[in-house]
């Protein structure tokens, strides 16, 4: 069994975890939640193992590099970080409701990586421009940031669902009764945005250092760079709107969704724009 097979298995485990978490909210029995937790932890352990295995395999192939340098690997790492952050959160808050909203992101990223025919999953050697430690640090910081923004977005969705349910006086019933109180999702939305913002800042900085040592220019308004800056601006607006102008709740939830759309475009959409190079 090679690493890509394991990643495919992980994809399905994450899908099942999502169903278990969802079943918990629909049926109202914590039993399914526990199964969900076990399932996602199993998936995460296998995910981590497959990642390490891929690393080792690259040495066996005589290439020897961290598996963080192409689109396939970045998707796999993205999903890994999302699940890691979720597991920490589940452990800290003792709440499984977020699982229903966060696992789909991890599943979709993994499904995209493992099922899309256009994505090359082979371990390939690095072209000279990618032979840089800064690239590794850059990818790690960016994807921790993206995963935190995923959390922020999921919290925004939960906030909007709950506030709609409250308006229709459904909040106490079935599925909706599991959604956390509005203040809780608002706070976690904000904290996700803060963590994401700090790591995106780090990501942009390390990316600039890499560009400076590879191409001699720390900033060249290339579409990928520009979109990361756009994302950064949107979250800067979010932070100021909340801290200085006191925005809370719905407005902030919508801002988190807009920010996340920008994150996805920075990551995936940029490749379809007219431009010079796309790194991943």
């Amino acid at each position: 069994m090679d690493n890509t097979m394991m990643f495919s298995v992980v994809t399905f485990i994450y899908l099942f975890s999502f169903f278990f978490y969802l079943l918990r909210m629909i049926s109202g029995t914590e039993f399914w939640g526990r199964i969900g937790s076990w399932s996602i932890m199993t998936g995460f352990v296998l995910h981590t193992f497959a990642f390490s295995y891929r690393w080792v395999e690259s040495y066996d192939l005589g290439i020897g590099r961290v598996p963080l340098t192409n689109f396939y690997e970045s998707l796999v790492f993205f999903a890994w970080t999302i699940v890691l952050i979720y597991l920490i959160l589940e452990w800290r808050t003792k709440s499984r409701t977020m699982g229903t909203f966060i696992t789909p992101f991890a599943f979709v990223a993994m499904a995209f990586a493992t099922l899309s025919p256009n994505i090359d999953s082979r371990i390939q050697p690095l072209i000279p421009a990618l032979q840089s430690d800064w690239l590794t640090i850059h990818v790690v910081t960016c994807f921790i940031g993206y995963a935190a923004f995923t959390l922020s977005c999921a919290m925004g969705i939960m906030y909007l669902l709950r506030s709609r349910a409250e308006k229709k006086s459904l909040a106490g019933r079935g599925f909706y009764s599991f959604l956390p109180a509005l203040e809780v999702s608002d706070e976690l939305n904000y904290q996700g945005a803060v963590l994401g913002f700090v790591f995106l800042t780090l990501g942009i900085m390390t990316g600039s250092i890499w560009a400076y040592s590879a191409w001699g220019s720390y900033w060249s308004w290339d579409p990928k760079e520009t979109w990361s800056l756009i994302t950064w601006f949107i979250y800067a607006i979010l932070l100021h709107a909340r801290f200085v102008r006191g925005w809370r709740g719905k407005k902030l939830a919508w801002l988190a969704l807009v920010g996340y759309a920008s994150v996805l475009f920075t990551y995936l959409g940029v490749n379809y724009l007219p431009g010079l190079h796309s790194y991943l």
Binding site: A236, I237, R245
Partner: peptide, 22 residues
């Protein structure tokens, strides 16, 4: 801060245009 938010929003939109146009 209002001006700041407006300015950042305008710069953001301009940057988006800059990535859409060759």
């Amino acid at each position: 801060i209002k001006l700041a938010i407006i300015l950042i929003a305008i710069i953001t939109v301009a940057s988006i245009i800059g990535t859409l146009l060759p």
